[in-house]
Structure formats: structure tokens, C-alpha cells
Design a protein around this nucleic acid. Sequence first.
RNA 1: GUCUCCUUCGUCUAGAGGCCUAGGACACUGCCCUCUCACGGCAGCAACACGGGUUCAAAUCCCGUAGGAGACGCCA
Length: 469
Amino acid sequence: MTVVTRFAPSPTGFLHIGSARTALFNYLFARHFGGQFLLRIEDTDRVRSTPEAIEAIISGLKWLGLDWDHDPIFQFERYKRHQEVALEMVAKGHAYYCYATPEELEEMRTLAGIEGRPLRYDGRWRHRSQDQAPEGVKPVIRLKAAETGETHLKDLVQGEITVSNTTLDDMVLLRSDGTPTYMLAVVVDDHDMGITHVIRGDDHLTNTFRQIQIYDGMGWERPQFAHIPLIHGPDGAKLSKRHGALGVEAYRDMGFLPEAMCNYLLRLGWSHGDDEIISEKQAIEWFNLDHVGRSPSRFDMAKLLNVNAHYLKEEENAKLLSLILPFLEKILGRDLFPFEKDRLLKGMAGLKVRSKTILELQEASYFYVAPLPFSRDEKAQSILTEAALILLKDLKTELETSEISWAETPLHENVQVFVEKKGLKLKDIAQPLRVALTGSLVSPGLFEVMEILGKEESLRRIENVVRED
RNA sequence: GUCUCCUUCGUCUAGAGGCCUAGGACACUGCCCUCUCACGGCAGCAACACGGGUUCAAAUCCCGUAGGAGACGCCA
């Protein structure tokens, strides 16, 4: 049997981090078994579904590299099929028309709440005949759920779960306007699409028992279910916007790499022994549902940052350059010259080990192309004492006249000798020199920077601070 | 309220009755490296929710208790 999984988001907002993980698990599971991963947009809520949200979901998935098979299926386009199934359920005696008004239902729930009963529909139209239908009320179609016995579910993550059928309620399958509810549409679509494994958030776990009633009523084979725990915020409560329930594009904008996001999300709730850094190839090879945990996990920005920093270090320099280019060109208000790109490319190795995100990388790299004079903060400025400036001036003269080749190691040696002759240590000139070259107290290694900037530019930068007074 | 699920360091987790004096990673602390900041290396801190069983032996199995989460819509 070929494995077929699906990701079925409702386009009512961005692709948030929990959904992204669900998509990732479905993707990996399908790829692991050489099966198919399908995308279905659940847009039956006509009021809340938007084209922008559809776009956000699709671009989010693409960014993460979770490519799906075939064209996406839009659930709303299948509403006739859903109606057909609802009617068939009525014909088979597994569903019935209900004429209760929304006000009536509201009242029913309030009363149940007061009396401490479950907040469920009481089945008042279950046994009434349609001749008693009130004038002008359009009915909904409700499931005629089993009232006795138990329903068993062997969930691939949660294990065996049994629920008494007395807790099931007669949920709405078809709304009074003829549109299907989620409960009906998922089941029909999952069945028609040949989904073999439904991997979704465990907020759907209790729904599953109700959905099983539809599979059974229609005589359809049930798929395998795997309900994965939700992601919680750092405080253990449901993930909210305050702590990370952002769209994946927000993480992209914060400077995270898609590989890092996937790796982090994968390890949240799933493990493979002590492995932490897992490539996509390896993830596909290793992933299955056996090692998905059953308890909810908390979103931890610090760990995400760490994983991102790792992938940043591994990433190719040219790729990183292409990621920071738009930022630099925007600040400078012009395209970069080839020699500037060249500098950045050479400097990338030293820059990327010092950055955790692309945003940090952008800022850290700016000095390589920034125009003189640098804007310096107070601390950097305070390093440039009179004594320091004299020292820099001497150093400049020394470097100008020296015949050494302008490369990291000889520069290091040369400057070393220079300070020692003055009875000083390298650290005595290091910070002033750094401020002159980069405008900052923090940067890649001095001599690496000097080599990359070249003799002319390095001396120009030193001259620039020396001349200020 | 009713039903269902969950519970190992602060966080993510390893752990399928003896390999557990409970391992790894992040975070944190200290040291080393050192021109700054990082990186890297070394070391440290730190957990089986609680109470009963079963067993020669339990983090692992069973039962309670507590705490947490989810579901209970003509939302998905």
C-alpha cells in the first residue's frame, strides 16, 4: 500500500509554527515511505477564508521546502460531493434533518452548563418526523451518532483510546445553507483523496471519534490516525502571538534559515537518539511515528537561535551573500560594486561564525562597505584617546613604508613588532585600530579585516580617524 | 461542568524491568584559547510530579492523587 498523507490548513491566517510542524511531519512520513504528500486548502468557512492566507500558506510551505504532490485541492470546490454524502447518510439512516434554531441551541447549551451536563446537542429532532418541521426554517443535517457501545481508536501516536458512545453527539454535517461542515468535509475528502495516514494536531483527537461515525456509516475504510501534541508557549499555555505563534514568514524576516526551522521543528516532539542536527535527507530516512512523543512541548527561541547559528555556519558564503545583499543595497541606496561583493565574500567566513541570524549577519557585515566616516557610538569613540591616535598615526606611517605582503599573517607579525618596539602589547593598539577599521568595538579578527579591505582602504580608514582632530 | 490525553534537568529530549551513580542538546556558570566579540575545547549546575502496589529488581508495568493540556460551534 502506498502511503498518502496530507496537510489541510484552513486559510484564515498565516501558516503558523504549529501547522508548519504538522506539515513537516506529514511530508517526512510520506517521503520516508516513498508515498505522496498532498495539500488541501480547507476553505469551507467562506467568511474567514482569504486569498492572502492561501498565498501565505503556499509561500510558507515553499520557503520551508515542503513541496507537495499534485495541485492543491480546494475543499470548497467539492461542496456538491459533500452534499451528496450528507444526503446518502440520511438515506442510509445515519443522519437526519434538524430544525432547531441557533437561539434554541444556545439556550440548550446554557441550560446544560447550569445543570452540569455535557454541553451537547440533545438529539431533539432525532426521532421527530419531518412533518413537524416549523414553517420557514431551513434544516441542517445531523449525524445520527451511535448511542450505545464504545468506539476504539488505535492512534499511531497516542496509542489505544476507547470512548463510550454515550459521549458522542449528533454533530452537524451540512449547514442550513447547504455547505458542509469541517467534520463532514475532512472525512469525505480524506476518503476520496485516498489518504492512508491522517497526521494532525491532537486538538482533533476527540473529533476523530465523531468522524469515525461517518466512515462507518458510509462503509468506508478508516485511515490510520496519528495525533501529534500541540506546541505550547514558554509558559506552558497554548502558543499565542506573544510567544511565537507567528507565521513562518515572520521567522524568515527575523533572519532564520528554512533548514534551521525544519530541524528545530522536527526535534520538537520527535527524536532519534541523541541526534540534534539532522539533514533533510537523514530526516526522511529516519522519520516515523514511533518516536513522536505524546506530551506537548514548549517553544524555545534560544534553542531555535542555536540551531540557526549552526546552519548559518554551514551555509555557503555565496548563498549568505545573496541573502544579505538586499539589505546592504537598501541602506546604501545603490547596488554594490563587484569589489565590495568580493570583500563580503572573503569576509563571510569570519562574519558568519559571529552571527545567529541573517539579520545579525547583515548588521555585522555593513562595515565592509560602509562609507567614511563611520558613525561611532560613545564607547567606540572613547577608545580613540589622544595617545591612541598618536599610536595609530605611527602605525600608519609604519605600514605605509613597510614592504610586507598585505596578508593576515605578515600583518599580524608586523604590528606585533611595531608595538613591542614601543614597549606595548598588541591589546594596547587592537581596539583603537578596530574602531578605525570597522567603527566598532566588535568585529572579526583585525588582520583578517585588514587583508580583506586591502592596503589602500585600510590606510584610508586609519587616516580618517587620525585626521579628525 | 463532562469526556479524552499528558507528566524525566529551566527547555527539547534519550530511556521499551536489571546496561541508570539517569545520557545528550540548548540555556546558565567557571576555566582554556585570545586583538574585541564569537567559534572551539574542558569542567560544572540541574530531572524520573506525588502516594501506593506487582517484582529478586521499576524512570520503565498496574492503581490512585495532584497538576497541565485539549475537545465539547450551522469554526477549522
